[in-house]
Design a binder for these strands. Structure first.
Lengths: 156, 156
DNA sequence: TGTGAAAGCCGCCAACT
DNA sequence: AGTTGGCGGCTTTCACA
């Protein structure tokens, strides 16, 4: 990994606030504007920073319910997995999608307005591909949600 | 909800790319610069935009393993729940934390480097509070991950 | 809401250590 | 790798229709 301490500090700052100016970043990490700017450019070009996004308040937008959906299948060929991936990617309600080890094959997090909106999603899902077993677990409350990855770098 | 179509379009753009300039936003949504800027200010002030962040590449930073941890407890009083919340919030490895309906009481997503890093986390967790049942499910692959909430607004 | 325009900061580059 | 200096442009703001 070709990152030094300063790079990690820059990443820590940016993943906390992407709209911070180069000048402020440079002051925090203790180098002057230009090298700091060059580092930031490099971190983007190398893909350490994937994108900069605005995080919206899901509750305010009436999307307060997360549902975790565990999926089991008996088809384990590559083409079916690809099909499932395509299907899932077309659902904007699915915000996370994992292939799992263990009992269940896949795990989804689905973000919807309420239970009936989830039911609509569920019907769409089982209609669009063949699944052996689908188990839904409802979240009552989102206690923590962060996009910040746990960097080894010291917190600023 | 005091948002019109234009506001929703602005939100859709910003949650896809927060570094887009006011001018580009204004062109996309069909109003001129200043009113568009005023809307964007308003959306932030009202809290629809919570923050702007950089999304980092977890794989590149050697944090490729997500573990979903289901927690069961027999203590259902408010003070214990608060204690758990505090404990969890102090773990940077825990990137998501939900109170669940159904069999399990809580669900965590923990982001770590590898299995042994997870084991370290696990030991820290069970040491810091009393839990009746902890089940860990490992994700082999993150197929989809987005911070974009499914807005009713038309995709741009 | 839209227009226009001023002020200022910021990203960006050049020349040098 | 770092610094210093500066140009150009965009963001931000205000005044007014």
């Amino acid at each position: 990994m070709d990152l030094d301490e300063i790079d990690l500090q820059i990443l820590a700052l940016l993943q906390c606030d992407a709209s911070i100016s180069t000048e402020l970043v440079s002051q925090h990490v203790g180098v002057s504007k230009t090298p700091c700017w060059r580092r930031m450019q490099r971190l983007e070009k190398l893909g350490y920073v994937k994108k900069k996004v605005a995080l919206l308040d899901a509750d305010k937008l009436d999307l307060g319910v997360s549902v975790f959906v565990q999926i089991k299948t008996n088809r384990h060929d590559a083409s079916w997995a690809e099909e499932l991936t395509d299907v899932i990617n077309d659902f904007p309600e699915v915000v996370e999608f994992y292939r799992m080890a263990g009992e269940y094959d896949y795990l989804l997090r689905v973000l919807v307005k309420d239970i009936s909106a989830y039911d609509e999603f569920y019907k769409k899902l089982i209609r669009s591909t063949s699944l052996t077993d689908v188990t839904s677990n409802f979240a009552m409350e989102q206690i923590k949600y962060t996009t910040e990855v746990p960097l080894a770098a010291p917190k600023i």
